[in-house]
Design a protein around this nucleic acid. Structure first.
Lengths: 273, 273
DNA sequence: CTGTTTTATTGATTTAAATCAATTAATCGG
DNA sequence: CCGATTAATTGATTTAAATCAATAAAACAG
């Protein structure tokens, strides 16, 4: 299969220096294993030919590299094809708040300040592990949606889901203690990753690759890495979880769900009626 | 003008017992002063005739009354026409987390768990002051959007904006101390109310009606009302704000913005390119 | 493989905010 | 207008998590 080489490639590379062109044959939208959970979820198959032209190409973002910083001009929007990305914001006091964990199929980069082509991202984005991205030019999104309402509906549905996750994130930070909040986060990510695997590639399991450092966990829920460490050790002593080598094993799902007040229903994909 | 009496009226009233039928002549969508910021923002005027038929009617919700509880079957979605509504969630330990402050023009009630007509709201909704609501049947939303993509685009845009507000809310709760977080919340609501007034009815001012109790403030940002009180008193002693009789006056906007790390840009309405 | 950097771990101490406890001030229903 | 309920205020005490500090262990680059 020929590797599509977008005319905008060199411009894009200048603007997003950490992106690398995808060398492997790129996945066509029509053949995409995660399409049903992603931006094009509602687009009829016969329309995918021309909607794919909207897509720029697939690119690689190496582990721990920044995709964009807050304020960067938002030329592109993204669907994560493979990997793990965090969206975050750095405060004046230097502290970092992780806003969202982006998993395969998730759409991001559409939140901007300002209007028109010069608008800037409201947040930064960074890969936790080597990731593959589907890149779309932001300025074509509206006209695409006008031609293909299923795209706008898909976007609204994904937005609804993201909003619900964000609100749960808020509850964890605002009204749960460290133990409850950490239990909830571990379960949320565990379930999301596992659901991802079911819909895409692998089998269910009680163990997932978990590339967060303890500092990442703390920055997600408003704790120091020192305190995160103490709570994780406690949960390990109680044989509820096991963490080692960027791998997380859930040993006692039921107890953990009680502690974190986690309901798997929140993870399920959302539909507008 | 005749008062439209929906065929679904009596069913609706059984289901949402606190809603009262609007006695005053109801505002037609075409004449709505806040339409440009609301759900029908992008819908061309010539289409508003048939899109309004989608709307059920306007209803009154008295002050401090609950519109729906978490888990209630989500028959309707809402645009707040006038008033002030909070969305919240009650945790197992009885604590309440306010998720979102709904101001005129804002759309809510679309976040549900489950699929199809029997899905339930993910959160509760309650009026802070007597409020007027535009009520839409939830089950017609998707077909409406398929016929009128501007509706889906408007929904996606509003979702993007709400998401950004939620993320700022998260930052306040996760990574700011009580003083910073309260300063931010006061400014956010002050700016949102003032923007509302500019686009709809009144003049700019340094003072707004502010119907939150100190407990409401605490439940929004994860503090006790006792601590909220101490911080508010401190800000008053420093002549930065003045609170009295459900009215908030911002005396020193600049200093307050510095304390809260508040950027008015976040309040501006969002557009997809 | 090896030195270097990053991340994890654990103890001692401090602190911001919670909790407990009264009182005072507002607001509301009749 | 008036008793009753709800909300605000203030002090004393406790506590969950932060901060400070020092290794130990892992991951990484050359």
């Amino acid at each position: 299969m020929a590797i599509p080489q977008s005319e905008e490639f060199s411009i894009l590379m200048n603007k997003r220096p950490n992106l690398q062109q995808c060398v492997d044959p790129q996945t066509e939208c029509i053949a995409c294993p995660i399409r049903k959970m992603a931006l094009f979820r509602g687009v009829p198959e016969e329309e995918l030919g021309w909607t794919q032209k909207f897509r720029d190409a697939q690119y690689l973002l190496p582990a721990r590299k920044t995709l964009y910083q807050e304020g960067d001009i938002a030329h592109s929007i993204y669907t994560l094809f493979d990997g793990w990305v965090i969206l975050f914001k750095i405060l004046d006091n230097g502290k970092r708040q992780i806003l969202r964990f982006v998993l395969p199929g998730d759409f991001f980069g559409f939140q901007v300040n300002g209007t028109g082509a010069g608008a800037g991202y409201t947040h930064g984005a960074q890969a936790l592990v080597a990731s593959t991205l589907c890149v779309f030019p932001r300025t074509r999104l509206r006209s695409m949606m006008e031609k293909q309402p299923q795209l706008a509906i898909g976007l609204a549905e994904m937005g609804m889901h993201d909003m619900t996750l964000c609100q749960h994130h808020l509850i964890g930070t605002g009204r749960k203690n460290a133990r409850e909040s950490i239990a909830f986060l571990l379960l949320e990510l565990f379930y999301r990753v596992r659901m991802q695997m079911q819909n895409g590639f692998n089998e269910a399991t009680d163990s997932i690759i978990f590339p967060l450092t303890q500092e990442d966990i703390g920055d997600a829920i408003g704790l120091t890495s020192v305190h995160v460490n103490r709570v994780l050790k406690e949960l390990e002593r109680e044989k509820l979880i096991h963490c080692q080598r960027k791998r997380l094993t859930i040993l006692d799902e039921e107890t953990l769900m009680e502690i974190g007040q986690f309901d798997p229903g929140m993870i399920e994909p959302k539909e507008l009626v």
